[in-house]
Amino acid sequence: MKTLMPYATLAGEVTFKVAAAKLDGRDLPLSMLSQQERVVALHQVERQKWDEARLDLRVRIPEAELAEGPWSDVVCVAVLTEGVSNLRTVTRLNRSADGTWVGSPTLARDACRTRAELSVSVVATVDGVPGRIIGGSEENWLVDVLARKPVRQRELHINEVDFGENQKPYEWLHAFKDAPWLVETSGDMPTVHLNTGFEGITELLGSGGSTMEKAVRGLIAAQIATEAWTAMFHSAVSDIEVAEDGSLEWPSGWRDWVLRAMLPDVLPDLSPADALSEIHSRRVETSGWNELQPRIQYAASRRARVAKNLGTAIRELDRSDEGDQ
């Protein structure tokens, strides 16, 4: 743990992995677990309805350090949380013969809306005080009940709709019927509405085509992504909450990961917590907010890989020019 505590905490690392998972007692295919991304995806096409997922955990804690330190009654627990659904379950793990801690926290489908975070804490009695958190995992897992693929960063949700058609529930898009696309960030998931009524756009963004078409497609995709990241960033910043005691809280859901992903590019010299408070104060105090816009735009264009896509397109143009001559 990085925060300084008024009692002895572990210096060594606590690491864990989800070795396997079961849905209602049946094994989840291993392809739905990603050790690299630390994500479990629970949405199987073949089995849409399920009640309970059981995760098989393997935890390593610094055994040698524990044996020598001032801790007693050591327990290791798995914690599953999700903000919007007020989910918080704490499951005790057991120490196995080889020193790893194992256990099977469960997640009820009814208890979780989209994705829960899974972390591990080590708890012990220190200086006569029971229940002290003496260490915890830093690299946590995500358990996604809606995802089919175990990926951390969700792709943008692309919704293809003809803006001109007054189609339910997208009547509001009618007012924008001459726009090729529109980014919406107010809901659960950021969404790009792609106007299929804009002639040629579906074909252009579809698969196939010449290398030139591919280059243009990359350029447009980068343009859409830049707008999406910029909109998401602003939406996330406006969702930072100030607690009763004046401290700031990270927003929940995708807004959390958007901020965490972009703040290092926007305010590169600050730690995540300091960057959060800096961005919040600049926004509410109005001074310094305008100066920050180029940095936000830069961060968004980096996420959207604008430089790479533009470079490719320019090279393609050069090459086609040479071919013409």
Binding site: T3, M5, P6, Y7, D51, E52, V75, V77, T89, V90, R92, A108, D110, A111, S121, V123, V129, P130, G131, R132, I133, E244, D245
Partner: peptide, 25 residues
Amino acid sequence: LATAINAAASTLMYEVLASDEGPDA
């Protein structure tokens, strides 16, 4: 009280101090 409870929870695991099987789903 809320501030004190919340602050203490950053160093204490309440679920270990007072365990609860949780509601019967």
